[in-house]
Amino acid sequence: MLINERLDRLGENPFTRLNALLAPITPRANERPVLLSVGEPQHAPPAFLAETITANGDLWNRYPPVTGTDEYRLAVTQWLTRRYRLKPGALDPARHALILCGTKEGLYLATQLAVPQVETGRKPVVLLPNPFYLVYRGAAAMAGAEIQPMPATRATGFLPDFDAIPPATLERTSLAFLCSPANPQGAVAGLDYLKRAILLAREYDFILVVDECYSEIWDKAPPVGALEACQALGDGFANVLVFHSLSKRSNAAGLRCGFVTGDEKLLARFQTFRSFGAAQVPMPLQAGAAALWREETHVEANRALYRSKFDIAERILGGRHGFYRPQGGFFLWLEVGDSEAAARRLWQEAAIKALPGNYIGVPDESGHNPGDGFLRVALVHDDATLTGALERLAQVL
C-alpha cells in the first residue's frame, strides 16, 4: 500500500501528458512530423564502439562485476582527472568510480539510499531545481520525502538559489539535486556557486547530487564540475555524488552505461545497495564504453555539430520568444505565453512536437509554476531537418 500511495504522488509523466494533449489533433501541415520534445541524440556514435563490442564478444557469458570492470573504472577516473584538471591520484578507480546502467537508474537509487524515514525527528526533505528532470521528482516521491522545489528562473540565472532555502528546511534536508548544464535552461554553475552548494551540504549534512550528463555539450567554454569545486575547497569529496553518462557525450543512449563518483563512503554503500537488485552492464558493453571515455575526437566533432544547431537557432529565433544561446546542453527554453496552447498550435499547424515547460515544473508556495509560459525545444536533429522545423516553429508562434 505504501508503494501505491507514493506512486500516486508521482504525478503524470510529462510525455504522457503531451501525448494526451495532442492526441485529438491531426496536423494540418503537409510536412513530415518532427519531434523536438525529446532530448534523444540523433548523431551516430563512433564506429569503433561497435567494433570494440564485437572484439569483446567472448565476454557475453560472464557475469559483470557490480562495480564495473577494472578497465572501465580506470578509464572513467582517468577521464575525470584530465577533464577537470584534478591532482594525480585524487581519484582511486577502486574507491571513486561505480558503474551504472545509465544515470537515470543511478539518480533514482541514490535517492532511495540517501533519504531516511525521519530526518531530525521530522519528515525528510529533498531539494530539486524547478523545472527539473522527471527522475528527480519521482525518486524523491518514491523515497517518501517532502519535495522542496527551488525556482530556477531568469531572476536566479536559471539555477536554483540555495541561499533562499530557510535553515529550518535545510536541517531536514537529506538530498539536493543540481543539474549543470541545466536541463532545460542550459545554464552552467560556476566554481563559486558549486563551492557554496557543497559547503551547505556539509554544514547541514545532506548529499549534493550533481547531474553533469550534459557537461560535454557546451558552446563557448567547458563547464566546471563539482569535483573541481571539491578540489578547490581542499576537503576531499565528502557529501557529493557526481553523475556522468555516455548518452549525450558519445551519442550512445542505447548503451545504458554511466557512472557515479565522489564521496567514497557513500559509493561503498551505493555499491552494496546496487548489488542486491540493480541491472549490470554486460562486459562487452563496458569495454565499448571504456573506449569511448578514452577518446575525445568524436566528442569534439559532436560538440561542433551542436554549435551548428545553436547557430541555426540563433539565426531563426534570435531576438524572439526570449531566445538566448544556452551555455550548455541542447535545449532551447522559449517564452511563448500559454505553453499548452503553443504546443497544440505547433502540432496542428506545423507537425512539430515541443514540450510545455509547466509539464516539467511544479507550482511553488505562491502557486506559480516556473515552467509556465515556456516551451522546451530539443536541438537534436540534423541541420536541414532542424532548419525547416525551426522556421515552421517561428512562423506559427
Rank of each mutant, 00 (worst) to 15 (best):
R6Q: 08
R17Q: 12
L22R: 01
R28K: 08
R32V: 07
V34H: 05
E40R: 04
Q42F: 11
A44P: 12
A44Y: 05
P45C: 12
L49E: 07
A50G: 10
A50Q: 14
W60D: 04
N61F: 00
A75Y: 04
L80R: 01
L80W: 09
T81G: 07
A90N: 10
P93D: 13
R95P: 02
A97W: 04
G102D: 12
T103W: 04
T103N: 10
L107W: 00
E119Q: 15
T120L: 02
V126G: 01
L128E: 07
P129I: 14
Y136L: 02
R137I: 13
R137G: 01
R137Q: 03
I147N: 00
P149N: 05
M150F: 03
P151G: 03
R154W: 05
R154A: 14
T156Y: 03
P160W: 11
P166L: 13
A168E: 15
L170S: 08
S174K: 03
L178S: 06
S180I: 09
N183Q: 08
N183A: 09
P184D: 07
A187V: 11
A189M: 06
Y193W: 14
Y193L: 02
L194W: 02
R196K: 12
R196G: 06
I198Q: 12
L200W: 07
I207H: 07
L208H: 02
V209K: 03
V209A: 14
D211H: 08
D211F: 09
C213R: 00
C230I: 06
Q231R: 15
H244K: 05
S245V: 09
S247K: 11
A253K: 14
V260L: 06
D263W: 03
Q271D: 07
T272F: 03
F273P: 04
S275D: 14
A279D: 00
V281A: 00
P284G: 11
G288T: 11
W293F: 15
R294W: 10
R294H: 11
R303F: 10
A313Q: 10
H321P: 02
G322C: 08
R325Q: 13
Q327D: 13
G328E: 13
F331T: 13
E335C: 02
G337R: 09
D338G: 03
W347Y: 12
Q348R: 09
Y359W: 04
E365K: 01
S366K: 07
D372V: 07
H381P: 03
D382Y: 05
A384P: 02
T385G: 05
T385I: 14
E391K: 09
L397H: 02
